[in-house]
């Protein structure tokens, strides 16, 4: 019970984990490659959400120093890390998508199961 209430209290973490599992599940079970890439993005983004949520301080302001002398900032480090993360994730998906187009040319399909079948027939 205590654990449940803790989970509900940290609902950001909970949502992030749920999203992570959905993303991973979609990525591994669907055979369409484009779908896999979308799911991969969802999975990555959910981890970024978790990161940002960790850095969040309740009632904290964005870490922009404007000279007025705010006292409570959110932790800026996760944000900086996630910027890198997003860029990396996008480049990975761009690469994956370009592969998909090549695969379409080579096999005439982008479905993993169908490709397996084609290769099995050979």
């Amino acid at each position: 019970m205590e654990m449940l209430s803790r989970l509900i209290h940290n609902y950001f973490y909970l949502a992030a984990i749920i999203l992570f599992v959905i993303g991973m599940h979609t990525m591994l079970t669907h055979s369409n490659m484009v779908k896999k890439v979308i799911a991969m993005n969802i999975m990555d983004t959910s981890v970024f959400l978790l990161f940002v949520a960790i850095g969040y301080v309740r009632g904290g302001k964005p870490p922009i120093i404007d000279g007025i002398g705010e006292t409570l900032y959110v932790n800026p480090l996760p944000g900086a890390l996630i910027l890198t993360g997003i860029v990396v994730a996008v480049s990975i998906s761009a690469y994956a998508l370009s592969l998909i187009i090549k695969i379409q040319r080579a096999y005439g399909t982008v479905d993993c199961d169908e490709i397996c079948q084609i290769r099995g027939d050979e």
Binding site: M24, M27, L28, M33, K36, M40, M43, D44, I92, Y95, A96, L99, I100, K102, I103, A106, Y107, C112, I115, R119
Partner: peptide, 18 residues
């Protein structure tokens, strides 16, 4: 860029993304 390489590469990419 032959068929096996592309497919193997994609599989690798997805699992490594996981």
């Amino acid at each position: 860029q032959d068929r096996e390489c592309l497919e193997a590469g994609f599989k690798y990419l997805i699992l490594s993304a996981m």
